[in-house]
Amino acid sequence: MSALILQDCHKKTIEEICIYYKNDPGDLIKILHKAQTAFGYLPESVQREIAFHLKISVAKVYGVVTFYSFFTMTPKGKHPISVCMGTACYVRGAEKVLDELKDQLRIKVGGVTENGKFSLDCLRCVGACGLAPVLLIGEKVYGRVEASQIKGILDSYQD
C-alpha cells in the first residue's frame, strides 16, 4: 500500500471520472478502471475520494478493489512484467520462467524492484498459447521463453 496525497488536479480527475458516470455506484467498477488508468494504481486516497463522490462507504469500495485481481493498490514498476500462467504455458514450463524472474529480480509475485524498474505479476492466459510459455513486459509479448533467456531479456531494458 502506498500513500498518495491528492492534489487538486488529482481530485479534479477523480471528480470528472465520477461525473462522467453520473456518480452512479452501479458503475463503480468502470470508475475504478478509469481511475486506475489515470493513476496507475488505486491508493487509499483515490478510493476515499471515489466513495465520497458516489456516496457509498469506503469499506464497500475497498471490498470491491480487493475482490478483483485487476485492481492494484501498489504502483507498478516502470516495466511491468506479467507471466502467463494459463494451462498451456504451465505445461510448457511457465513456472520455471517465473522462478527465474523471481530470482533475478529478487521480488515476489506482486512486488516491485527497489529501483521501481520492474514489477512482477502473473496472469491467466493471454491467448497466445501457440507461443507458450509467454511473458509480457509492458505491451511487448515474449513467446517460447526459456529460463536461460531471462537475464538477456531483462538486460535489454537499460533505462
Binding site: 455506484p25 452501479g26 467498477i29 475504478l32 470491491v64 475482490f67 485481481s69 485487476f70 485492481f71
Partner: peptide
C-alpha cells in the same frame, strides 16, 4: 462492461453482481 479479473464472474449470478458494481 469490463470485468476486472475474477474467474467466478463467469458464473451468471456473480456476473450480474459485478455489473451492478
Amino acid at each position: 462492461r469490463y470485468g476486472a479479473g475474477a474467474f467466478v464472474c463467469g458464473e451468471e449470478t456473480a456476473l450480474i453482481k459485478s455489473m451492478e458494481g
